[in-house]
Design a binder for these strands. Structure first.
Lengths: 105, 105
DNA sequence: TCGGTAAATAGCGATACTGCGATATACTGC
DNA sequence: GCAGTATATCGCAGTATCGCTATTTACCGA
């Protein structure tokens, strides 16, 4: 039916989504090409933190924490290349979350 | 694409779901017959607050606030009959939320 | 190795959420 | 009206979250 582990996992995900800026960031990441160009193409490695920070209009530390929260929730993955951290949506997990609403929830 | 109103609405819903007890309650309401019997059948009018409170093992005021939060998020509806408030899932809204994950989110 | 840049973490005040007891409101039966 | 029950709301202390600056860590090129 619904084990407690799944429940805890869902709570973490919902908490992460329960913030306007974090929710918006996840939406922005659907179109990585809308961000400024970067060394590695955003379509393949993800969007550089700096660009996310700029669009969200928050401090560097806040942007970093937002992405860490989304990552802990399994909603995004991080690819570090050199000194840059690139973030992209974890479509598999997001789709799974959508499926759980209505079944587990 | 995704207007701010929808975004705000989603944030409220996700905040409501980002709590282990509230998430569990929403799951329990999928099977109203698992609750103790009551004057009006739970399948049709919803589950009495007292029964939700008992299963969640929280105080009366906490249970009332939990349900108010879920109701504000549009995830449950309340049917007041006499002195009893009955709560049931708003399947339409829940399904809509599931659909928005992956499209709007 | 050193200076510069990107990101993560520490620490902090402000704010929001949590869950409770106490109280107020609403309804019922007598 | 009155006593009893069910629920909603108030006010509070404890806790967690928020977003920042300052600092630390990690990586790069010269």
């Amino acid at each position: 039916m619904k084990d407690d582990e799944t429940n805890d996992e869902l709570v973490v995900a919902f908490k992460a989504l329960g913030h306007p800026t974090r929710l918006a960031i996840l939406g922005w990441l659907k179109d990585p090409t809308s961000f400024p160009p970067q060394d590695q193409p955003a379509e393949t490695v993800g969007v550089c933190l700096k660009h996310i920070q700029a669009r969200a209009n928050v401090s560097q530390s806040t942007a970093s924490q937002f992405m860490a929260t989304l990552q802990r929730a399994g909603l995004v993955t991080c690819t570090r290349i050199g000194q840059w951290s690139h973030y992209q949506r974890n479509e598999e997990q997001i789709a799974r979350l959508g499926r759980l609403i209505g079944s587990s929830v």
